[in-house]
Write a protein that binds this DNA or RNA. Sequence first.
DNA 1: TGCATTTTAAAACAGATGTTTTAAATTACG
DNA 2: CGTAATTTAAAACATCTGTTTTAAAATGCA
Lengths: 210, 210
Amino acid sequence: METKDKILEAAMQEFADFGYRRSTVRGICRRAGVNIAAVNYYFSGKEELYRQVFEWVIHARERIEPPAPGPVTTAAEFERELRNWIYRMVIRFVRRSRNRLDRTRSRIGLHEMMDPSELFPEMFERYSRPEMEAAEQLLQLALPPDTPRDTIRIKICNLLGQCFFYFVLREFVEQYTGEAGFPDRCHAEIIDEILQNTLRGLSFHGNRPA
Amino acid sequence: METKDKILEAAMQEFADFGYRRSTVRGICRRAGVNIAAVNYYFSGKEELYRQVFEWVIHARERIEPPAPGPVTTAAEFERELRNWIYRMVIRFVRRSRNRLDRTRSRIGLHEMMDPSELFPEMFERYSRPEMEAAEQLLQLALPPDTPRDTIRIKICNLLGQCFFYFVLREFVEQYTGEAGFPDRCHAEIIDEILQNTLRGLSFHGNRPA
DNA sequence: TGCATTTTAAAACAGATGTTTTAAATTACG
DNA sequence: CGTAATTTAAAACATCTGTTTTAAAATGCA
């Protein structure tokens, strides 16, 4: 394999494991089995290498655009779409989930959220914003049209908070449960609980689609 | 003021701002207005300094033990206790919240959750575990006695995820809302939404205290 | 083959960080 | 006051990190 590609491959793993700040050029080169100077030869430095990995993260996400929601006119359809959204948020972080590359990308994104670099605003706009707006549009189907923007945003944040908690604070959850793989073992029930919480939070307003 | 106390005071702020890893001895000494060597003179190094700040965090928490829950026999009492618990979780991170020292402590704990040091397990057991168990006991009052342990834990995690999201991923929320102080401005409604979500998630099982 | 270009390798460099050393300044106290 | 202990200050040290330099090795190609 080309040295450049070996570096990119190693960098993805390093950034996914440690995030940008805590990743080291030496660590990446050790993984790739190349000389330290190669990063500055092929990329102009650590920052540009990260930017290229970042572009790969974004592009892959933009290619695998979340499937356009199906028609939503019944409560069952609404529930199906909401479950799909929650499933997409959660499953990416579950260990041994189908798509390993997607998990690598998601972990890089997670580090970017927890310890933002200067690329964070761009990553949010291109990577996260579409997901947030998809959720907003979905929830608005089940809320009175005059629902204040703040309220919608709080509902979205509470929804996302439940999805992310297990993976953002993984050590916390592991210490709490005394089990290393709790979020992975229970992800199905976790998705279910989040779905039920959210559905009830909406139906309370009496506007869930018939 | 004594040099040692100036260092401790400055270290609290530095650790609250940056967490253990990203805090620097030089930064602490600059804040304290003392020479760099003072940290190694009064404490044996950065690690021991952190441990003493950490002990201060724990002690203060153990002194201000969360108020023992009142009697819970009615739905209103249950709701009051649950709201108190959520309020305690959220208010500590809200800027300009009453107790500045408590906020400093909480921010140190937050950093420890997001980027655990070797002290994390001890911090969890002494600082967080009591809160988690208080929540468990409370929720169990509203759940069938044969509710599986996994289910209870998931409910607790989903509850805590909603409380922490705004402060663990503060930059994310700021980018999403385009507003720096969203969690601070809306904390009352946030607490309310979390409470309603959780109440409905429990009443669904038909066991909320009459 | 022979020469120019590209790639790799080793070492050194520059900056940041935690720590240690050394000595000066201050304080305690008999 | 005068000496000993304590405290402060400056500088140096060791390690880690990203980067650059320099030259050797490999490759491309006429």
